[in-house]
Amino acid sequence: MSDRIFGAVGLLLALFYAWATLQIEESFMSDAVGPKTFPLGIAAILGLSSIVIFLKPDDEPQWPPLARLAEIAAAVVVMILYAEFLPIAGFVIATAFAAAYLTWRLGSSPLQSVIIGVGTSLGIYVIFHLVLGLSLARGPLGF
């Protein structure tokens, strides 16, 4: 079933890709091939392989239970928030939060999580910023 859905989504993706390619406005000067041929070829093979996947699905993969899926979704949200808040909060604070969250979800106790989060953040800050001189996001506090 998963592969049938995957094949169907792949086919839609291929159609969308082909449609988006056809929207490309060609400039007045172009080479013999033009900017559309290659992407159209890609869309064709993408569609073909999706149809094959749809018609000949593999064995069902082991999907995690809903709770685990929610876990991954939550981690994604945390990462997105991290990406958004990084320039605002600064590297050390944002990273401490994100690392603490991840290690907590992987099974550290709450207190340990805080220590590991802060430790990870400071460790990376010292190695990458102070030792190696990599520029990290600066927060309002200067780090």
Binding site: M79, Y82, A83, L86, F91, T95, A98, A99, A100, L102, T103, L106, G107, S108, I116, G117, T120, S121, G123, I124, F128, L134, S135, L136, A137
Partner: peptide, 19 residues
Amino acid sequence: PPRILMPVVAMVSFVGIYG
């Protein structure tokens, strides 16, 4: 344990790309 290692991997990835 991976519970310490994996957050480090994730954060180093972010640092690298942001860098």
